[in-house]
């Protein structure tokens, strides 16, 4: 493995008195899709939100340990949270397009970060991002339509386009398909596979099949701890840990 893009070293998260994440270590490589699986409430969503400091918005959350993005601690004073989130984009469980036009949704990131100077550059970014998200053909004639008017699957791809438009290095996906039907899910999964060429992707999923389909590596979370990390094939065919085996064979979950 190359030098990893993310190195997580001994991270603990507390919500008030609740110890949600217990000394987790994990490396994430460039150009890989890594899945985080585990029973609900195991802390996988909490963990992924540590990677772009989304937990900052929760008043009672406290975090300790180191999360290094290309060697810089993202929780250090030098790291700017705006910069961090520009570099580490996020797609959420429920599609959350802004109540604005499709165009403005995608242009949102480039605009706030001042990435472009001219309208035509912005047009290019919007087009490119929608193309990468596989949505361009469906919406190119109605870019001014409001984002919430799209179907659920389209909305989620719009959110992915919105994230891509900033040009991040890593994309975090928190159960991106849990609110979608199987056909929309399949489209998103194909998209994830294509995006792997350019971005590191961390995906939280409750579906083991999805993890097996889209990711190269998988980490199994249990009660706030990582029980096992490994190649996806190995985790699903030959888990080393008893807890992992119980989970993937469906003994609990």
């Amino acid at each position: 493995m190359d030098k990893p893009i993310f190195q997580v070293k001994g991270v603990d998260v507390f919500y008030g008195d609740n110890h949600a994440i217990k000394s987790v270590n994990l490396d994430i490589a460039r150009n890989e899709v890594i899945s985080l699986i585990g029973p609900s409430g195991c802390g996988k969503s909490t963990f992924i939100r540590c990677l772009n400091r989304m937990n900052d918005t929760i008043e009672s959350a406290r975090i300790s340990g180191e999360v290094l993005l290309e060697g810089e601690d993202i929780y250090s004073k030098e790291m700017d949270v705006v910069m961090l989130r520009a570099r580490v984009g996020m797609v959420f469980q429920k599609p959350n397009p802004f109540p604005k036009s499709i165009y403005d949704n995608v242009a949102y990131g480039p605009r706030i970060h001042g990435l472009v100077d001219t309208r035509s550059d912005l047009d290019d970014i919007v087009k490119e991002s929608l193309q990468k998200a596989g949505l361009w053909e469906e919406v190119k004639d109605r870019l001014t339509a409001i984002g919430t008017s799209l179907s659920g699957g389209q909305q989620q791809r719009l959110c992915i386009a919105r994230t891509i438009a900033v040009g991040p290095e890593v994309i975090l996906m928190d159960e991106p398909c849990s609110a979608l039907d199987p056909i929309a899910t399949a489209k998103i999964e194909d998209l994830i596979d294509e995006l792997r060429e350019k971005y590191a992707i961390v995906i939280v999923t409750h579906s083991m099949q999805q993890a097996a389909r889209v990711s190269q590596r998988t980490a199994y979370f249990h009660l706030g701890e990582i029980i096992e990390v490994g190649d996806t094939d190995q985790i699903f065919t030959n888990p080393k840990e008893r807890l992992t085996e119980d989970y993937i064979t469906g003994r609990f979950g």
Partner: peptide, 17 residues
């Protein structure tokens, strides 16, 4: 693109804050 992103974003940070 990502090098580019860092410089562009950091240019705007001051006025944004």
């Amino acid at each position: 693109m990502s090098r580019d992103l860092k410089t562009l974003v950091s240019q705007g940070l001051k006025s944004r804050y």
